[in-house]
Design a protein around this nucleic acid. Structure first.
Length: 386
DNA sequence: TCTGGGGTCCTAGGACCC
DNA sequence: TCTGGGGTCCTAGGACCC
């Protein structure tokens, strides 16, 4: 039992309730405002009693509980609190895999001689996060990642649980299939349609049927169903893509307005690439129509780039070739993929000379609000005249 | 009821190469 | 005139996770 999973309870909402005592005991919803097109990011357990859930449209959350307090997320604060939590975790093992801002796996195989059993470490962590940061963190312990996370999900909020070998035999088979990592709503529905509802149903079904429903994931999923998961705790994963997207308050048809948005997204993505010392070979533009149909168009270039001009040029071309010019859109996104370290950059035979304007912009952006400084040379005349 | 934003991974067809 | 087999890369779409 050397894998520990921990998950901060209703993290964003808990930080707000801790810092604003008048919110304690009240339904608090962190996310987009109710009159917008956004969704709920997190909500307090009081709000969950009304049926409010993460990813639910804020408008629906409002209808379920009009008296709820709706707050926009303050990601800077949450990042800071998250950092403090991870600093505590790092005292118990160097092998930590962050799953998100509020969740992590710890491999404790080297920690027992100093700190005792996994259960003892779990209690330690929970006590310290509570007393030092005023936050509840739930802890699951088991022999692998899947079972540890399952334990957390079963014991939260404010709980600790060890998922034992006996529970693999007695409890796991009784759970619904969507408890398995990788079974989302589509796969769950597919399985249900074939009469498969529980993990036991899955184990009893002919493997050929499961393969026809789940494809190449079948082996991994059937392993989980038996409590087997050989994935290691991996402290560092290389970034594969960097992207930003925006959903408009109202659909936008004007192609010049869309191009301006693409320009701002290019600047944002380029800045993030440079901060990560990365360049990208593949630019992808994502467009979503009012009927929620999503298209993507991508282009791979021989030279990797991380300046907004190059990215914007590709993005604009992809938009213009998408057949969506002048048509209403509800979302526009831009992603840079096929990344490589910019320090290994090959010198182009025809490299541009001249001052590196990007680094000047980066310094200004760091000083002021990120993404606000855009060189006028990137703007077309019609934009400058507006 | 009306669906965010950040990602990862997989599939499948077509181009292209040997 | 009729045409393989293996491999890689690119593109588009979609499921899934937090």
């Amino acid at each position: 039992m050397h894998i520990l999973h921990c998950d901060l309870d209703a993290f964003f909402a808990s930080v707000e309730q801790r810092d604003h005592p008048e919110l304690k005991g009240k339904p608090v919803v962190i996310g987009a405002p109710p009159n917008s097109r956004g969704v709920v990011s997190t909500c307090s357990y009081e709000a969950r009693q009304y049926g409010i859930r993460s990813a639910m449209p804020s408008s629906q959350a409002y209808r379920l509980c009009p008296q709820a307090v709706f707050l926009p997320p303050d990601m800077k604060r949450y990042q800071e609190e998250s950092r403090k939590v991870f600093n505590i975790l790092a005292e118990y093992t160097p092998v930590i895999e962050a799953l998100s801002i509020d969740e992590a796996f710890l491999d404790l195989s080297g920690s027992h001689s100093i700190w005792g059993s996994s259960m003892a470490i779990g209690h330690h962590i929970r006590h310290r996060v509570k007393s030092e940061l005023g936050l509840n963190i739930s802890v699951g312990i088991s022999t692998n990642k899947f079972l540890a996370k399952l334990a957390t999900n079963l014991c939260k909020p404010d709980g600790i649980m060890e998922f034992t070998d006996q529970m693999v035999v007695d409890l796991l088979p009784t759970l619904s299939v969507d408890n398995l990592w990788g079974i989302g709503s589509v796969s769950a529905q597919r399985l249900n349609h074939s009469g498969i509802y529980t993990v036991q149903d899955l184990l009893d079904a002919p493997e050929q049927l499961i393969t026809s429903l789940l494809g190449s994931n079948t082996g991994f999923i059937l392993g989980l169903a038996k409590g087997i998961d050989n994935r290691p705790v991996t402290p560092y994963e290389e970034t594969k893509s960097i992207g930003n997207e925006i959903t408009f308050p109202k659909n936008v048809s004007d192609s010049l307005a869309i191009e301006q948005v693409l320009l701002r997204l290019s600047e944002k993505v380029a800045y993030r690439l440079r901060r990560a010392q990365l360049k990208s070979h593949t630019i992808t533009v994502k467009l979503r129509t009012p009927d929620f149909h999503t298209l993507s168009r991508s282009k791979t270039c021989p030279t990797a780039v991380n300046d907004s001009r190059s990215i914007f040029d590709v993005a604009r071309m992809l938009y213009q070739q998408s057949g969506q010019e002048g048509k209403p859109l509800r979302l526009v996104g831009l992603t840079a993929g096929r990344l490589q370290g910019s320090e290994y950059e090959q010198l182009s035979l025809f490299a541009n000379s001249g001052p590196d304007i990007s680094s000047v912009i980066d310094r200004l952006n760091q000083k002021y609000t990120s993404g606000t400084i855009i060189p006028a040379s990137l703007l077309d005349n019609h934009e400058r005249n507006q």
